[in-house]
Design a protein around this nucleic acid. Sequence first.
DNA 1: ACATCATCCTGTATGC
DNA 2: TGCATACAGGATGATG
Length: 274
Amino acid sequence: MPEMPEVETVRRTLTPLIVGKTIEKVKLWYPKIIASDPKAFQTNLIGQKIVAVDRYAKFLLIRLSKEQTIVSHLRMEGKYRLTTPEMPKDKHDHVQFTFTDGTALRYNDVRKFGRMELVETGTEKTTTGIAKLGSEPNSVDFSVAKFYQALQRKHKNIKSTLLDQTVVAGLGNIYVDETLWQSKIHPLTPANKLSKARVKMLHDNINQTITLAIAKKGTTVHTYLDANGDSGHYQELLQVYGHAGEPCQRCGTTLEKIKVNGRGTTFCPRCQRL
DNA sequence: ACATCATCCTGTATGC
DNA sequence: TGCATACAGGATGATG
């Protein structure tokens, strides 16, 4: 599942494939992927040139020449691939942008959870899901002091708090489990009960893990691939996610899997005490 | 205002 | 072997 490191990797691989190209036609095989008006999405994009691909947290921001932006969220399984319009449609291809140079960008999504919408550039931070997001890891706004203050206001457990994107934006199930293990924090610990020292540890581990995961081009479990069709490598460094029933690499205790607010959660019952 | 829960989807895994 | 059911999960809108 694409979290911030995977979306950043998609951004980096997608940029050289599409920037500078002009959209000639948009095909919607599954219009529900478009969160804004699908008809307007199709017609407004014609003739626009792609000028850049930006990102905020897990959102891709495809910048267009007429001061518009496609805000795209891959959710669980969304993928972009450069192809040609003649290529047979895959079962899970849902959107196609045909370019004037004869190539085409396809959006493929097995679960159909991903969404994209067209907004005026500059309004995306107030009119889309980005509006409610907290600061990103490694950003100036993500300071230890602010992080601690934000957690003090949260009464729910730390696992759910990190998954809801209003405090820190960009983490998903994988990196939350990993950073909690690194910081020796039990996932059910109330967020406002963490000591300042523990919060600093968690903060630093989040920043370092996101940085390293981006360097490793993301984590491929299940089906994540970047825009070149390549898998990431951070999965080789995972300590807890996907390792339930195996010994903890720090103390040897068998890792446990529980449900926290409906999300699978793996942790070490000895290293991560309540 | 906050927290919790169902919902969207389909491939894979498990049960009978 | 085949059919039915459970499970996975990010964000959102509804409900408590």
